[in-house]
């Protein structure tokens, strides 16, 4: 199946789900006798989404790029590294609150470099610590923006 058609199928399902969710939008008391409510636009969009997706499914794909199947397109892609990086970002987002901006950022960068195959420790440290510290310094000292320290330190501090 051409990859563009796969995309249209996904969008078709998404539009339908969106339309169903739109049914659940609460209507305020004042909107009861209005003709354009909070649901009107979502309904219209859901219908449009379904229609366009169907048109793409029905008409032949003209773009030769889009005719290739997903399997052909993704053949030989480096999934392992990409998934590890995405995992790294998620862990980064989750640890930010606990260990603070500086430590979590440096760790994220170091782990990222490692995932991409960098092994020279000195280089890794040089490419992470100065950037993070510089950004922190610009924000907190020069621009006066408060960056909260990690929660973990409060816990360790026994407060």
């Amino acid at each position: 199946m051409a990859r563009e058609k796969v995309g249209a199928l996904v969008m078709l399902l998404f539009s339908m789900a969106y339309g169903l969710l739109a049914l659940k939008i609460p209507l305020s008391f004042l909107a009861q006798n209005e003709f354009f409510t909070s649901r009107t636009m979502p309904y219209a969009l859901a219908v449009l989404g379904v229609l366009i997706a169907l048109l793409i499914l029905v008409f032949p794909t003209t773009d030769p790029e889009g005719k290739r199947s997903l399997r052909e397109e993704t053949h030989g892609m480096d999934w392992k590294t990409a998934i590890l990086l995405v995992g790294g970002m998620i862990v980064y987002g989750l640890t930010m609150k606990w260990i603070g901006f500086i430590i979590s950022s440096i760790l994220f960068l170091l782990v990222g470099f490692y995932i991409l195959g960098e092994r020279r420790i000195k280089r890794m440290l040089l490419a992470s610590i100065p950037w993070v510290v510089m950004l922190w310094f610009i924000m907190s000292s020069l621009l006066g923006v408060y960056i909260a320290p990690g929660e973990l330190f409060y816990m360790l501090g026994g407060l």
């Binding site: 990086l85 989750l94 930010m96 994220f108 990222g112 995932i115 991409l116 960098e118 960056i147």
Partner: peptide, 22 residues
């Protein structure tokens, strides 16, 4: 191998450092 993590870092920070919302 150094650049890609840095792009990810600066992009994530570009949003985080405005909202401070993890």
């Amino acid at each position: 191998n150094l650049m890609v993590p840095m792009i990810l870092f600066f992009s994530l920070m570009g949003v985080y450092l405005i909202t401070f919302n993890d």
